[in-house]
């Protein structure tokens, strides 16, 4: 719900800045480790956007890969989950470096 409210704030800011009345499509980039429950965000989005320029807008979510630094082979690797072992050396000590993004990429407006 907080995320949807964050989106609403940004939509309102952008509407003031660019002078549009309606958002038809909004695209988000969500990292694999961001922990965003997509159906929950979709539900919250519909509810929170009511009365805003983004009411009824289509919500698209693009996945971004999870990246982590392996402490054993000292390389940055892509992993599916935070607990995955290093795909290069099998090491278990990885520090996430990316994949927790929650960004609005762009919006189609009218």
């Amino acid at each position: 719900m907080s995320l949807a409210e964050g989106i609403r704030e940004i939509v309102l800011d952008q509407a003031r800045q660019h002078g549009f009345a309606r958002v038809t499509c909004l695209r988000l980039e969500i990292g694999r480790f961001a922990g965003v429950e997509k159906p929950a965000l979709e539900f919250a989005f519909d509810v929170v956007m009511r009365g805003s320029p983004a009411e009824g807008a289509r919500l698209e979510m693009l996945d971004l890969p999870g990246r982590a630094l392996c402490f054993d082979c000292e390389t940055t690797v892509e992993i599916d989950s935070r607990l995955s072992p290093c795909p290069r050396c099998g090491g278990g000590r990885l520090l996430p470096e990316g994949g927790d993004e929650m960004r609005i990429k762009d919006m189609e407006v009218a």
Partner: peptide
Amino acid sequence: RAAGGSVPGMSQERLIAVETSILSKN
């Protein structure tokens, strides 16, 4: 699809690059 403003009566859809973190205000 979304067109320029030179066609009377058509809506003017645009794409705005936002590239802003949802938590940017926080």
